[in-house]
Design a protein around this nucleic acid. Structure first.
Lengths: 243, 243
DNA sequence: AAAAATCTTGAACGATTGTTCAACTGGAAT
DNA sequence: ATTCCAGTTGAACAATCGTTCAAGATTTTT
Protein backbone atom coordinates (compact mmCIF):
# COMPACT_ATOMS: atom_id res chain seq x y z
CA UNK A 1 0.00 0.00 0.00
CA UNK A 2 1.00 3.59 -0.51
CA UNK A 3 3.84 2.89 -2.85
CA UNK A 4 3.57 5.59 -5.47
CA UNK A 5 4.96 9.02 -4.89
CA UNK A 6 3.39 11.93 -6.62
CA UNK A 7 5.94 14.03 -8.36
CA UNK A 8 5.50 17.75 -8.40
CA UNK A 9 6.78 19.14 -11.65
CA UNK A 10 7.52 22.74 -12.46
CA UNK A 11 3.88 23.37 -13.37
CA UNK A 12 2.58 22.90 -9.82
CA UNK A 13 3.78 25.41 -7.28
CA UNK A 14 0.96 25.63 -4.74
CA UNK A 15 1.11 24.47 -1.16
CA UNK A 16 4.69 24.20 -0.06
CA UNK A 17 6.77 27.32 0.39
CA UNK A 18 7.99 27.50 -3.22
CA UNK A 19 9.44 24.52 -5.04
CA UNK A 20 12.32 24.21 -2.64
CA UNK A 21 15.26 22.00 -3.48
CA UNK A 22 14.98 18.46 -2.22
CA UNK A 23 17.53 18.81 0.55
CA UNK A 24 15.65 21.64 2.20
CA UNK A 25 12.33 19.86 1.82
CA UNK A 26 13.74 16.79 3.54
CA UNK A 27 15.10 18.89 6.37
CA UNK A 28 11.71 20.53 6.80
CA UNK A 29 9.86 17.24 6.77
CA UNK A 30 12.34 15.77 9.22
CA UNK A 31 11.53 18.50 11.72
CA UNK A 32 7.86 17.66 11.49
CA UNK A 33 8.32 13.92 11.93
CA UNK A 34 11.03 14.05 14.60
CA UNK A 35 8.97 16.53 16.63
CA UNK A 36 5.93 14.29 16.44
CA UNK A 37 7.51 10.89 17.06
CA UNK A 38 10.93 11.42 18.61
CA UNK A 39 14.21 10.19 17.21
CA UNK A 40 13.81 6.44 17.47
CA UNK A 41 10.18 6.20 16.45
CA UNK A 42 10.57 8.52 13.49
CA UNK A 43 11.17 6.67 10.22
CA UNK A 44 13.11 7.78 7.19
CA UNK A 45 10.29 6.61 5.00
CA UNK A 46 7.73 8.82 6.68
CA UNK A 47 10.11 11.73 6.39
CA UNK A 48 10.61 10.99 2.70
CA UNK A 49 6.87 10.75 2.14
CA UNK A 50 6.25 14.03 3.95
CA UNK A 51 8.94 15.69 1.86
CA UNK A 52 7.54 13.99 -1.26
CA UNK A 53 10.87 12.57 -2.28
CA UNK A 54 12.03 8.95 -2.74
CA UNK A 55 13.50 7.22 0.28
CA UNK A 56 16.96 6.97 -1.15
CA UNK A 57 17.39 10.72 -1.29
CA UNK A 58 17.40 11.01 2.48
CA UNK A 59 20.49 8.90 2.88
CA UNK A 60 22.09 10.45 -0.17
CA UNK A 61 21.91 13.95 1.26
CA UNK A 62 22.42 13.25 4.96
CA UNK A 63 24.24 9.94 5.07
CA UNK A 64 22.13 8.45 7.82
CA UNK A 65 19.15 9.04 10.03
CA UNK A 66 21.43 10.42 12.72
CA UNK A 67 23.11 12.69 10.19
CA UNK A 68 19.73 14.12 9.28
CA UNK A 69 18.88 14.60 12.93
CA UNK A 70 22.13 16.41 13.58
CA UNK A 71 21.59 18.60 10.54
CA UNK A 72 18.45 19.97 12.15
CA UNK A 73 20.40 21.11 15.19
CA UNK A 74 23.23 22.50 13.09
CA UNK A 75 20.65 24.58 11.29
CA UNK A 76 18.57 25.84 14.22
CA UNK A 77 20.76 25.81 17.31
CA UNK A 78 23.15 28.67 16.41
CA UNK A 79 20.32 31.20 16.21
CA UNK A 80 19.08 30.40 19.70
CA UNK A 81 22.60 30.28 21.11
CA UNK A 82 23.56 33.64 19.59
CA UNK A 83 20.44 35.28 20.97
CA UNK A 84 21.17 33.89 24.41
CA UNK A 85 24.76 35.06 24.33
CA UNK A 86 23.58 38.51 23.32
CA UNK A 87 21.01 38.54 26.10
CA UNK A 88 23.64 37.57 28.66
CA UNK A 89 25.96 40.33 27.43
CA UNK A 90 23.13 42.78 27.93
CA UNK A 91 22.42 41.44 31.40
CA UNK A 92 26.02 41.94 32.44
CA UNK A 93 25.62 45.71 32.14
CA UNK A 94 22.96 45.76 34.86
CA UNK A 95 24.65 46.32 38.23
CA UNK A 96 21.69 45.49 40.49
CA UNK A 97 21.66 41.71 41.05
CA UNK A 98 17.92 41.45 41.51
CA UNK A 99 17.34 43.26 38.26
CA UNK A 100 20.11 41.44 36.50
CA UNK A 101 18.81 37.98 37.33
CA UNK A 102 15.59 38.82 35.51
CA UNK A 103 17.60 39.68 32.40
CA UNK A 104 19.51 36.42 32.73
CA UNK A 105 16.26 34.50 32.93
CA UNK A 106 14.96 36.33 29.90
CA UNK A 107 18.18 35.58 28.04
CA UNK A 108 17.44 31.89 28.54
CA UNK A 109 13.74 31.90 27.91
CA UNK A 110 12.86 34.54 25.36
CA UNK A 111 14.87 33.11 22.46
CA UNK A 112 13.15 29.76 22.95
CA UNK A 113 9.68 31.19 23.33
CA UNK A 114 10.24 33.47 20.36
CA UNK A 115 10.95 30.35 18.36
CA UNK A 116 7.36 29.31 18.90
CA UNK A 117 6.15 32.14 16.73
CA UNK A 118 6.96 30.13 13.60
CA UNK A 119 5.68 26.60 13.04
CA UNK A 120 9.13 25.25 12.30
CA UNK A 121 10.54 26.92 15.40
CA UNK A 122 7.81 25.36 17.48
CA UNK A 123 8.74 21.96 16.11
CA UNK A 124 12.39 22.52 16.92
CA UNK A 125 11.40 23.37 20.47
CA UNK A 126 9.55 20.08 20.75
CA UNK A 127 12.53 18.21 19.36
CA UNK A 128 14.83 19.84 21.92
CA UNK A 129 12.44 19.03 24.70
CA UNK A 130 12.25 15.39 23.68
CA UNK A 131 16.00 15.17 23.33
CA UNK A 132 16.38 16.48 26.86
CA UNK A 133 14.14 13.83 28.34
CA UNK A 134 15.60 10.97 26.33
CA UNK A 135 18.13 8.86 28.24
CA UNK A 136 19.59 7.54 24.99
CA UNK A 137 20.36 11.09 23.89
CA UNK A 138 23.76 10.68 25.50
CA UNK A 139 24.74 8.33 22.70
CA UNK A 140 23.93 11.02 20.17
CA UNK A 141 25.84 13.65 22.14
CA UNK A 142 23.81 16.50 20.71
CA UNK A 143 23.17 18.34 23.94
CA UNK A 144 26.76 18.15 25.01
CA UNK A 145 27.86 19.56 21.68
CA UNK A 146 25.25 22.20 20.96
CA UNK A 147 23.87 23.32 24.30
CA UNK A 148 26.35 22.64 27.07
CA UNK A 149 28.51 25.68 26.22
CA UNK A 150 25.67 28.14 26.61
CA UNK A 151 24.41 26.27 29.65
CA UNK A 152 27.76 26.91 31.32
CA UNK A 153 27.43 30.57 30.38
CA UNK A 154 23.99 30.70 31.92
CA UNK A 155 25.18 29.00 35.09
CA UNK A 156 28.10 31.39 35.29
CA UNK A 157 25.79 34.36 34.89
CA UNK A 158 23.59 33.17 37.75
CA UNK A 159 26.64 32.72 39.94
CA UNK A 160 27.76 36.26 39.14
CA UNK A 161 24.42 37.63 40.24
CA UNK A 162 24.65 35.96 43.63
CA UNK A 163 28.31 35.25 44.44
CA UNK A 164 27.52 33.87 47.89
CA UNK A 165 25.41 31.05 46.50
CA UNK A 166 26.80 27.54 46.66
CA UNK A 167 27.50 25.54 43.53
CA UNK A 168 24.47 23.42 44.25
CA UNK A 169 22.22 26.45 44.68
CA UNK A 170 23.33 27.89 41.37
CA UNK A 171 22.92 24.65 39.48
CA UNK A 172 19.53 23.82 40.91
CA UNK A 173 18.40 27.33 40.08
CA UNK A 174 19.42 26.72 36.50
CA UNK A 175 17.61 23.40 36.49
CA UNK A 176 14.44 25.03 37.74
CA UNK A 177 14.65 27.61 34.99
CA UNK A 178 15.30 24.97 32.37
CA UNK A 179 12.44 22.80 33.58
CA UNK A 180 9.89 25.57 33.61
CA UNK A 181 10.96 26.58 30.14
CA UNK A 182 10.97 23.07 28.77
CA UNK A 183 7.48 22.22 29.87
CA UNK A 184 6.17 25.16 27.91
CA UNK A 185 8.01 23.94 24.83
CA UNK A 186 6.63 20.47 25.45
CA UNK A 187 3.05 21.08 26.35
CA UNK A 188 0.88 20.78 23.29
CA UNK A 189 -2.59 20.62 24.73
CA UNK A 190 -2.60 19.67 28.38
CA UNK A 191 -2.70 23.14 29.85
CA UNK A 192 -5.51 24.04 27.46
CA UNK A 193 -7.34 20.85 28.41
CA UNK A 194 -6.90 21.39 32.16
CA UNK A 195 -7.91 25.05 32.00
CA UNK A 196 -10.94 24.37 29.88
CA UNK A 197 -9.40 26.26 26.99
CA UNK A 198 -8.88 29.48 28.93
CA UNK A 199 -5.09 29.29 28.96
CA UNK A 200 -3.53 29.09 25.51
CA UNK A 201 0.09 27.95 25.41
CA UNK A 202 0.42 29.27 21.85
CA UNK A 203 0.62 32.84 23.09
CA UNK A 204 4.29 32.72 23.92
CA UNK A 205 4.45 36.36 25.00
CA UNK A 206 1.96 35.84 27.80
CA UNK A 207 3.53 32.51 28.70
CA UNK A 208 6.94 34.14 28.96
CA UNK A 209 5.55 36.88 31.17
CA UNK A 210 4.20 34.36 33.67
CA UNK A 211 7.20 32.05 33.70
CA UNK A 212 9.72 34.89 33.95
CA UNK A 213 7.79 36.51 36.80
CA UNK A 214 7.72 33.28 38.79
CA UNK A 215 11.34 32.36 38.18
CA UNK A 216 12.64 35.85 38.93
CA UNK A 217 10.81 35.93 42.23
CA UNK A 218 11.94 32.39 42.96
CA UNK A 219 15.61 33.19 42.56
CA UNK A 220 15.41 36.59 44.23
CA UNK A 221 13.53 35.49 47.32
CA UNK A 222 14.42 31.85 47.79
CA UNK A 223 14.84 30.77 51.41
CA UNK A 224 18.48 29.69 51.61
CA UNK A 225 18.43 28.54 55.20
CA UNK A 226 18.26 24.88 54.18
CA UNK A 227 20.45 24.96 51.10
CA UNK A 228 23.46 27.16 51.74
CA UNK A 229 25.51 24.52 53.53
CA UNK A 230 27.65 23.71 50.48
CA UNK A 231 30.75 25.80 49.64
CA UNK A 232 30.16 29.07 47.79
CA UNK A 233 30.71 29.42 44.07
CA UNK A 234 32.31 32.86 44.27
CA UNK A 235 31.01 34.13 40.97
CA UNK A 236 33.37 31.93 38.98
CA UNK A 237 31.90 29.29 36.69
CA UNK A 238 33.42 25.82 36.65
CA UNK A 239 35.96 26.31 39.34
CA UNK A 240 35.58 22.60 39.87
CA UNK A 241 38.17 21.97 37.21
CA UNK A 242 36.01 20.35 34.55
CA UNK A 243 35.90 21.77 31.09
CA UNK B 1 -6.54 -7.90 18.42
CA UNK B 2 -6.42 -8.01 22.17
CA UNK B 3 -7.50 -11.57 22.68
CA UNK B 4 -5.61 -12.60 25.77
CA UNK B 5 -7.15 -12.49 29.20
CA UNK B 6 -5.29 -11.33 32.24
CA UNK B 7 -5.74 -13.84 34.99
CA UNK B 8 -5.13 -13.14 38.65
CA UNK B 9 -4.89 -16.46 40.39
CA UNK B 10 -5.10 -17.21 44.08
CA UNK B 11 -1.31 -17.52 44.26
CA UNK B 12 -1.03 -13.80 44.89
CA UNK B 13 2.30 -13.67 46.63
CA UNK B 14 4.28 -10.87 48.17
CA UNK B 15 6.59 -9.39 45.63
CA UNK B 16 10.00 -10.99 45.35
CA UNK B 17 12.64 -9.62 43.00
CA UNK B 18 14.70 -12.81 42.87
CA UNK B 19 12.83 -15.73 41.34
CA UNK B 20 9.53 -13.96 40.83
CA UNK B 21 6.67 -15.29 38.71
CA UNK B 22 6.86 -14.46 35.03
CA UNK B 23 4.22 -11.76 35.04
CA UNK B 24 6.00 -9.69 37.67
CA UNK B 25 9.34 -10.17 35.99
CA UNK B 26 7.95 -8.92 32.70
CA UNK B 27 6.46 -5.88 34.40
CA UNK B 28 9.78 -5.13 36.02
CA UNK B 29 11.72 -5.54 32.81
CA UNK B 30 9.20 -3.39 30.97
CA UNK B 31 9.88 -0.52 33.36
CA UNK B 32 13.57 -0.74 32.62
CA UNK B 33 13.18 -0.83 28.85
CA UNK B 34 10.39 1.76 28.57
CA UNK B 35 12.33 4.15 30.79
CA UNK B 36 15.43 3.75 28.68
CA UNK B 37 13.92 3.88 25.20
CA UNK B 38 10.45 5.37 25.42
CA UNK B 39 7.23 3.73 24.33
CA UNK B 40 7.70 3.49 20.59
CA UNK B 41 11.37 2.57 20.58
CA UNK B 42 11.00 -0.07 23.28
CA UNK B 43 10.54 -3.56 21.87
CA UNK B 44 8.66 -6.47 23.31
CA UNK B 45 11.57 -8.70 22.49
CA UNK B 46 14.03 -6.68 24.49
CA UNK B 47 11.58 -6.67 27.38
CA UNK B 48 11.23 -10.42 27.12
CA UNK B 49 15.00 -10.87 27.02
CA UNK B 50 15.48 -8.65 30.05
CA UNK B 51 12.82 -10.58 31.93
CA UNK B 52 14.34 -13.85 30.68
CA UNK B 53 11.07 -15.18 29.34
CA UNK B 54 10.01 -16.17 25.81
CA UNK B 55 8.49 -13.43 23.67
CA UNK B 56 5.09 -14.98 23.54
CA UNK B 57 4.57 -14.62 27.27
CA UNK B 58 4.46 -10.85 27.06
CA UNK B 59 1.40 -10.84 24.85
CA UNK B 60 -0.15 -13.67 26.78
CA UNK B 61 -0.07 -11.81 30.07
CA UNK B 62 -0.70 -8.26 28.90
CA UNK B 63 -2.46 -8.63 25.58
CA UNK B 64 -0.39 -6.06 23.77
CA UNK B 65 2.51 -3.69 24.09
CA UNK B 66 0.12 -0.91 25.05
CA UNK B 67 -1.53 -3.16 27.61
CA UNK B 68 1.84 -3.77 29.21
CA UNK B 69 2.59 -0.06 29.20
CA UNK B 70 -0.71 0.74 30.86
CA UNK B 71 -0.14 -1.98 33.44
CA UNK B 72 2.93 -0.10 34.65
CA UNK B 73 0.87 3.00 35.34
CA UNK B 74 -1.92 1.02 36.94
CA UNK B 75 0.66 -0.40 39.31
CA UNK B 76 2.64 2.72 40.18
CA UNK B 77 0.37 5.72 39.70
CA UNK B 78 -2.06 5.14 42.61
CA UNK B 79 0.72 5.35 45.21
CA UNK B 80 1.88 8.73 43.97
CA UNK B 81 -1.66 10.00 43.61
CA UNK B 82 -2.65 8.92 47.09
CA UNK B 83 0.38 10.58 48.63
CA UNK B 84 -0.40 13.79 46.78
CA UNK B 85 -4.00 13.77 47.87
CA UNK B 86 -2.89 13.25 51.46
CA UNK B 87 -0.39 16.07 51.16
CA UNK B 88 -3.05 18.40 49.83
CA UNK B 89 -5.38 17.48 52.66
CA UNK B 90 -2.64 18.38 55.11
CA UNK B 91 -1.98 21.65 53.33
CA UNK B 92 -5.61 22.67 53.62
CA UNK B 93 -5.31 22.86 57.41
CA UNK B 94 -2.71 25.62 57.14
CA UNK B 95 -4.49 28.99 57.22
CA UNK B 96 -1.59 31.21 56.19
CA UNK B 97 -1.47 31.28 52.35
CA UNK B 98 2.28 31.79 52.12
CA UNK B 99 2.89 28.82 54.35
CA UNK B 100 0.19 26.76 52.71
CA UNK B 101 1.58 27.17 49.20
CA UNK B 102 4.79 25.57 50.34
CA UNK B 103 2.86 22.55 51.55
CA UNK B 104 1.01 22.40 48.24
CA UNK B 105 4.30 22.44 46.37
CA UNK B 106 5.63 19.70 48.60
CA UNK B 107 2.48 17.68 48.02
CA UNK B 108 3.27 17.71 44.34
CA UNK B 109 7.00 17.19 44.49
CA UNK B 110 7.87 15.04 47.47
CA UNK B 111 5.95 11.92 46.37
CA UNK B 112 7.74 12.00 43.05
CA UNK B 113 11.16 12.66 44.49
CA UNK B 114 10.63 10.00 47.09
CA UNK B 115 10.02 7.60 44.25
CA UNK B 116 13.63 8.10 43.22
CA UNK B 117 14.82 6.35 46.35
CA UNK B 118 14.14 2.99 44.73
CA UNK B 119 15.50 1.99 41.33
CA UNK B 120 12.09 1.00 40.03
CA UNK B 121 10.60 4.27 41.23
CA UNK B 122 13.32 6.18 39.48
CA UNK B 123 12.48 4.36 36.28
CA UNK B 124 8.80 5.13 36.65
CA UNK B 125 9.69 8.79 37.03
CA UNK B 126 11.60 8.69 33.78
CA UNK B 127 8.70 6.98 32.05
CA UNK B 128 6.31 9.66 33.29
CA UNK B 129 8.65 12.38 32.16
CA UNK B 130 8.92 10.89 28.69
CA UNK B 131 5.19 10.41 28.45
CA UNK B 132 4.69 14.08 29.29
CA UNK B 133 6.96 15.26 26.51
CA UNK B 134 5.60 12.86 23.90
CA UNK B 135 3.07 14.43 21.52
CA UNK B 136 1.73 11.00 20.60
CA UNK B 137 0.92 10.31 24.24
CA UNK B 138 -2.53 11.75 23.57
CA UNK B 139 -3.39 8.64 21.58
CA UNK B 140 -2.58 6.50 24.61
CA UNK B 141 -4.59 8.76 26.93
CA UNK B 142 -2.59 7.78 29.99
CA UNK B 143 -2.06 11.23 31.40
CA UNK B 144 -5.67 12.18 30.98
CA UNK B 145 -6.71 9.03 32.82
CA UNK B 146 -4.14 8.75 35.58
CA UNK B 147 -2.86 12.23 36.25
CA UNK B 148 -5.40 14.83 35.17
CA UNK B 149 -7.59 14.32 38.26
CA UNK B 150 -4.81 15.09 40.70
CA UNK B 151 -3.57 17.90 38.46
CA UNK B 152 -6.98 19.55 38.83
CA UNK B 153 -6.73 19.10 42.58
CA UNK B 154 -3.32 20.75 42.58
CA UNK B 155 -4.55 23.63 40.45
CA UNK B 156 -7.52 24.06 42.74
CA UNK B 157 -5.27 24.11 45.79
CA UNK B 158 -3.09 26.84 44.27
CA UNK B 159 -6.20 28.89 43.50
CA UNK B 160 -7.38 28.51 47.08
CA UNK B 161 -4.08 29.88 48.36
CA UNK B 162 -4.36 33.01 46.26
CA UNK B 163 -8.02 33.60 45.39
CA UNK B 164 -7.31 36.85 43.58
CA UNK B 165 -5.07 35.18 41.01
CA UNK B 166 -6.39 34.85 37.48
CA UNK B 167 -6.98 31.48 35.88
CA UNK B 168 -3.90 32.00 33.76
CA UNK B 169 -1.75 32.88 36.75
CA UNK B 170 -2.80 29.75 38.59
CA UNK B 171 -2.27 27.46 35.64
CA UNK B 172 1.10 28.88 34.70
CA UNK B 173 2.17 28.53 38.30
CA UNK B 174 1.24 24.87 38.14
CA UNK B 175 3.13 24.48 34.88
CA UNK B 176 6.24 26.03 36.40
CA UNK B 177 6.01 23.62 39.31
CA UNK B 178 5.50 20.66 37.02
CA UNK B 179 8.36 21.65 34.76
CA UNK B 180 10.86 22.12 37.56
CA UNK B 181 9.83 18.77 39.00
CA UNK B 182 9.94 16.96 35.68
CA UNK B 183 13.43 18.04 34.78
CA UNK B 184 14.70 16.51 37.99
CA UNK B 185 12.96 13.26 37.11
CA UNK B 186 14.41 13.45 33.63
CA UNK B 187 17.97 14.51 34.22
CA UNK B 188 20.21 11.49 34.37
CA UNK B 189 23.64 12.99 34.12
CA UNK B 190 23.59 16.47 32.70
CA UNK B 191 23.56 18.38 35.95
CA UNK B 192 26.40 16.21 37.20
CA UNK B 193 28.29 16.78 33.97
CA UNK B 194 27.75 20.54 34.01
CA UNK B 195 28.68 20.88 37.67
CA UNK B 196 31.78 18.74 37.34
CA UNK B 197 30.24 16.11 39.58
CA UNK B 198 29.62 18.45 42.50
CA UNK B 199 25.83 18.35 42.21
CA UNK B 200 24.36 14.88 42.44
CA UNK B 201 20.77 14.52 41.22
CA UNK B 202 20.47 11.18 42.98
CA UNK B 203 20.15 12.85 46.35
CA UNK B 204 16.47 13.56 46.06
CA UNK B 205 16.21 15.13 49.50
CA UNK B 206 18.65 17.88 48.67
CA UNK B 207 17.14 18.30 45.21
CA UNK B 208 13.69 18.69 46.74
CA UNK B 209 14.96 21.26 49.21
CA UNK B 210 16.33 23.44 46.41
CA UNK B 211 13.41 23.11 44.04
CA UNK B 212 10.80 23.66 46.75
CA UNK B 213 12.62 26.75 48.04
CA UNK B 214 12.73 28.31 44.58
CA UNK B 215 9.15 27.48 43.68
CA UNK B 216 7.75 28.64 47.01
CA UNK B 217 9.50 31.97 46.71
CA UNK B 218 8.45 32.21 43.07
CA UNK B 219 4.77 31.83 43.83
CA UNK B 220 4.84 33.93 47.00
CA UNK B 221 6.67 36.90 45.54
CA UNK B 222 5.88 36.88 41.86
CA UNK B 223 5.40 40.30 40.32
CA UNK B 224 1.79 40.27 39.16
CA UNK B 225 1.77 43.69 37.54
CA UNK B 226 2.05 42.20 34.05
CA UNK B 227 -0.08 39.09 34.48
CA UNK B 228 -3.15 39.93 36.54
CA UNK B 229 -5.19 41.32 33.64
CA UNK B 230 -7.23 38.13 33.19
CA UNK B 231 -10.35 37.47 35.29
CA UNK B 232 -9.83 36.06 38.78
CA UNK B 233 -10.30 32.41 39.61
CA UNK B 234 -11.97 32.94 42.96
CA UNK B 235 -10.56 29.87 44.63
CA UNK B 236 -12.78 27.48 42.72
CA UNK B 237 -11.20 24.98 40.38
CA UNK B 238 -12.65 24.46 36.94
CA UNK B 239 -15.28 27.10 37.05
CA UNK B 240 -14.84 27.23 33.32
CA UNK B 241 -17.36 24.44 32.95
CA UNK B 242 -15.09 21.70 31.67
CA UNK B 243 -14.91 18.38 33.47
C1' DA C 1 -7.32 -41.10 38.27
C1' DA C 2 -9.07 -38.37 34.54
C1' DA C 3 -10.31 -33.94 32.83
C1' DA C 4 -9.98 -29.13 32.48
C1' DA C 5 -7.94 -24.88 32.93
C1' DT C 6 -3.83 -22.27 32.99
C1' DC C 7 0.84 -21.28 31.87
C1' DT C 8 4.90 -21.74 28.97
C1' DT C 9 7.51 -22.28 24.68
C1' DG C 10 9.69 -21.28 20.26
C1' DA C 11 8.66 -21.08 15.63
C1' DA C 12 6.32 -18.48 12.27
C1' DC C 13 3.64 -14.46 10.07
C1' DG C 14 3.37 -10.27 7.45
C1' DA C 15 4.70 -5.61 7.90
C1' DT C 16 8.23 -2.28 8.47
C1' DT C 17 12.91 -0.74 9.64
C1' DG C 18 17.61 1.93 7.94
C1' DT C 19 20.47 1.49 4.38
C1' DT C 20 22.48 0.16 -0.19
C1' DC C 21 22.71 0.01 -5.04
C1' DA C 22 22.59 -0.07 -10.11
C1' DA C 23 20.31 2.47 -13.36
C1' DC C 24 18.92 6.87 -14.86
C1' DT C 25 18.48 12.16 -15.45
C1' DG C 26 19.91 16.70 -17.00
C1' DG C 27 23.01 20.27 -17.34
C1' DA C 28 27.93 22.03 -17.03
C1' DA C 29 32.87 21.17 -18.48
C1' DT C 30 35.88 19.43 -21.71
C1' DA D 1 29.82 15.81 -29.21
C1' DT D 2 31.51 13.61 -25.52
C1' DT D 3 32.62 13.22 -20.82
C1' DC D 4 31.41 13.93 -16.36
C1' DC D 5 29.11 14.12 -12.12
C1' DA D 6 25.84 15.73 -8.58
C1' DG D 7 21.18 14.64 -8.27
C1' DT D 8 17.40 11.34 -8.50
C1' DT D 9 14.78 7.04 -8.57
C1' DG D 10 12.62 2.73 -7.01
C1' DA D 11 13.79 -1.83 -6.20
C1' DA D 12 16.09 -4.78 -3.05
C1' DC D 13 18.71 -6.08 1.27
C1' DA D 14 19.01 -8.14 5.86
C1' DA D 15 17.31 -7.19 10.24
C1' DT D 16 13.75 -6.43 13.33
C1' DC D 17 9.03 -5.20 14.62
C1' DG D 18 4.32 -6.72 17.33
C1' DT D 19 1.58 -10.39 17.29
C1' DT D 20 -0.29 -15.15 16.59
C1' DC D 21 -0.40 -19.97 17.11
C1' DA D 22 -0.15 -24.96 17.80
C1' DA D 23 1.91 -27.66 20.78
C1' DG D 24 3.83 -29.05 25.23
C1' DA D 25 4.18 -28.50 30.34
C1' DT D 26 2.14 -27.61 34.69
C1' DT D 27 -1.35 -26.95 37.95
C1' DT D 28 -6.12 -27.12 39.53
C1' DT D 29 -10.57 -29.11 39.56
C1' DT D 30 -13.50 -32.91 39.12
Amino acid sequence: MMGAIIRMNASDDTGTPAQAPARARILDAAEVVFARHGYDAATTRRIAETAEVPVGLVNYHFGSKLGLYRAIFELRAPTVMDQRAAGLAMARSEPDPDRRIELVIKALILPMFGLRASPSGLRFGQIMSRELSDPSSDERGIFAEFFDPVARMMIGAIGECYPDWSVAEVHWAYQAMLGAMMIVMTDAGRIARLSGGVVAPEDHEIAARHIVAILAAGLRHRDRSLTKDTPAMGGKPNETGDI
